Amino acid sequence: SGWQYDTQCSLAGVGIEMGDWQEVWDENTGCYYYWNTQTNEVTWELPQYLATQVQGLQHYQP
Rank of each mutant, 00 (worst) to 15 (best):
T37N: 09
E27H: 15
T7M: 05
D26S: 12
V42C: 07
E23G: 01
A12M: 02
Y60K: 13
H59V: 09
G13L: 08
Y60V: 14
L46Q: 07
Y33Q: 04
N40H: 12
L57V: 11
A51G: 05
C31M: 10
W3K: 15
E27P: 05
M18N: 00
Q61G: 12
P62H: 14
S1L: 03
T7I: 04
Y32C: 03
G56N: 13
E45P: 03
T37S: 13
W44Q: 11
V14S: 09
P62A: 14
G13Y: 02
E45Y: 03
Q38C: 12
L11G: 01
Q4T: 15
T37H: 12
Y60E: 14
L57Y: 06
E27W: 02
E23D: 04
E17S: 09
H59M: 14
Q58F: 08
S10R: 05
G2N: 15
Y49M: 10
G56T: 13
V42W: 04
W44F: 10
A51D: 05
P62E: 04
S1K: 15
N36H: 07
Q48H: 09
C9G: 11
Q38M: 10
W35P: 00
V42S: 13
L46R: 04
L46C: 06
T7D: 06
G13M: 09
M18L: 06
L50P: 01
N36Y: 00
Q55S: 08
S1A: 13
W35E: 15
T39R: 06
Q8L: 05
E27N: 10
N28G: 14
E41N: 05
W21Y: 11
G56D: 15
L57W: 05
D26R: 03
Y34K: 01
C31G: 10
T52L: 11
P47M: 01
S1T: 13
A12H: 08
C9I: 09
E17H: 10
N28K: 14
A51M: 07
Q8C: 08
L50T: 01
C31H: 12
L11N: 01
Q4S: 12
Y34L: 01
L57F: 13
W44C: 11
A51P: 01
V14K: 14
E23F: 03
Y60F: 14
P62V: 04
S10H: 02
E23Y: 02
W3Y: 13
V54P: 01
G19L: 03
E27C: 08
A51W: 08
Q58S: 10
S1R: 07
P62Y: 09
S10L: 02
Q8I: 04
Q58E: 11
Y60I: 15
I16K: 03
Y60A: 14
N36V: 00
N28A: 12
T43Y: 05
Q22E: 13
H59K: 15
N28E: 11
Q61T: 15
Y49G: 09
C9P: 05
Q55I: 06
S10D: 03
Q22R: 13
M18K: 02
L57P: 11
T52G: 13
C9W: 05
G30A: 10
Q61H: 07
G13F: 10
Y60R: 14
Y5S: 06
A12N: 05
D6E: 09
Y33S: 08
D6K: 13
H59Q: 14
Q22N: 12
Q4R: 14
A12Y: 12
G13N: 04
Q4W: 07
Y32N: 03
G56S: 12
P47N: 05
N28W: 06
S10I: 03
Q4G: 08
E17M: 04
E41G: 04
W25N: 00
Q53F: 02
S1G: 14
T29D: 12
T37V: 11
I16W: 02
G2W: 07
L11V: 08
A51C: 09
N36M: 02
T7E: 04
V24T: 12
Q61P: 08
H59I: 13
T37I: 12
W35R: 15
W21D: 01
A12E: 07
E27S: 08
P47F: 00
P62D: 05
N40V: 03
V42I: 08
Q48W: 04
A51I: 01
T43C: 12
E23A: 00
Y34V: 02
Q4Y: 08
G56F: 04
P62L: 12
W3E: 05
N28R: 11
Q8W: 04
C31R: 15
H59S: 12
Y32I: 06
E41F: 03
L50G: 01
Y49T: 12
L46H: 02
V54N: 03
W21L: 00
P47K: 06
A12T: 04
C9Q: 13
Y60N: 13
T52Y: 07
N28V: 03
V54M: 13
S1C: 11
T29I: 05
E23V: 00
M18D: 00
Q38H: 12
T39F: 03
P62T: 12
Y32T: 01
Y34W: 04
P47A: 00
W3Q: 15
E41T: 06
T37G: 09
I16V: 13
L57H: 11
Y5M: 13
W44P: 08
N36L: 00
T29E: 15
I16C: 05
T7H: 06
G13I: 04
W25R: 06
G19K: 08
T52D: 15
Q22F: 04
W44A: 07
D20H: 11
N40M: 06
P62W: 15
Y49C: 11
Q53I: 02
A51T: 06
T7V: 07
T39L: 04
Q48Y: 15
Y49W: 07
Q58M: 11
A12R: 10
L57D: 11
D26A: 08
C31L: 08
N40S: 11
L50V: 03
Y5P: 03
L46E: 03
Q8V: 08
M18S: 02
V24I: 04
C31F: 14
L57C: 06
E17W: 04
V14D: 06
T43R: 07
Q48I: 07
S1N: 10
V14L: 11
D20L: 05
W44D: 04
Q8D: 03
N28L: 07
C31T: 10
V54I: 14
G13D: 11
T39P: 00
G15I: 02
W21T: 01
C9H: 09
V54C: 09
E27L: 04
Q48C: 09
C9K: 15
T52C: 07
D20K: 06
E17I: 05
T52F: 05
A12K: 09
H59A: 13
C9V: 15
E45I: 10
I16A: 05
G56I: 04
I16T: 03
G13Q: 08
W3C: 10
T39S: 13
G30Q: 13
L46S: 01
